[in-house]
Design a protein around this nucleic acid. Structure first.
Length: 268
DNA sequence: GACCAGGGCGGCC
DNA sequence: GGCCGCCATGGT
């Protein structure tokens, strides 16, 4: 049975709660994580995490274990960034399913994380394949089989037609081909989908296509940088930060996002 | 009962 | 290109 060290490079709870993933359950020291049609059950011990259910190779790829986080976390230029890094140390960027990210982050727009999770769970229950004990994330084909009215009744509000439209657009699309596109090309392609703007596209690129040079700018990141850069548009800020932080952009974005939300949760 | 949320769209200039 | 009002819904 696979075990990994519980150290400064892996904090499972923070990794799951930092807003990059919507399908997981935490019961004390027992974590259940869902991705595409897979399920992983992980138990936390005093010094390690043990994968008690699920595929080992999938687990290692999903939790980004082919990357060296000592290097990623070293030589951080800005003080407020290294502060956030220390606060968030142990967060790993997950390698998630591209299609699942497309629909999850369309749902995420102008929405609270608890509600995003509830909506996604409802969609899985209604349209996901029964895997015996749990439901898979719905396939693009399954999502394309329903119309906007169905999603409206599922409580998606004005995002109902976005989901229906995106599903129809992506039906039959070759995601391996998409993975071969460079980041600007792929961003342009994603932004052709209804309901996908710069920010949602960047989340899909970062979490679904492992483009670590991308720096998604949402309302929380805007709060972090508004006093530094003043009155700047989210899109401009995203370009600027991606250029400044390069391949560390995704990690830095996650540290800042997590710290901002956690501290505001406590005091605000 | 406001206010806000991992924003995007359409209309306007 | 940039700005602005609106969009459903429900958690806090």
């Amino acid at each position: 049975m696979l075990s990994v060290k519980k150290d400064e490079n892996f904090n499972l709870k923070a990794t799951l709660e930092c807003g990059q993933v919507f399908r997981y359950k935490i019961n004390g020291g027992r974590y259940t994580v869902f991705s595409k049609d897979k399920m992983m059950v992980i138990e936390e011990n005093e010094s390690s995490y043990t994968l008690v259910e699920g595929e080992e190779a999938f687990f290692l790829k999903y939790f980004d274990f082919d990357r060296n986080y000592d290097i990623i976390c070293s030589n951080i230029a800005d003080d407020f960034v290294s502060d956030a890094m220390r606060f968030s140390r142990g967060i790993r960027l997950l390698n998630q399913d591209p299609a699942e990210m497309v629909f999850s982050f369309i749902i995420s727009q102008n929405n609270h994380i608890p509600r995003i999770k509830a909506i996604i769970e409802r969609l899985c229950d209604a349209l996901g394949e029964d895997k015996g004990g749990y439901k898979a994330f719905p396939t693009v084909e399954a999502l394309a089989s329903k119309d906007a009215d169905f999603y409206h009744k599922a409580g998606l509000g004005y995002r109902a037609e976005y989901i229906a439209s995106a599903a129809r657009s992506l039906c039959g699309e070759d995601f391996n081909k998409l993975s071969g596109m460079n980041t600007p090309e792929l961003r342009n392609y994603l932004m052709l989908l209804k309901g996908v703007g710069r920010k949602v596209a960047d989340c899909i690129l970062l979490f679904g296509f492992s483009r670590r040079e991308v720096f998604p700018v949402d309302t929380w990141i805007m709060k972090v940088f508004s006093d530094i850069y003043g009155n700047i548009s989210a899109d401009k800020l995203a370009c600027l930060l991606s250029e400044r932080y390069g391949e560390k952009s995704g990690y830095i974005q996650q540290w800042l996002f997590y710290k901002k939300r956690e501290t505001e949760k406590r005091f605000g």
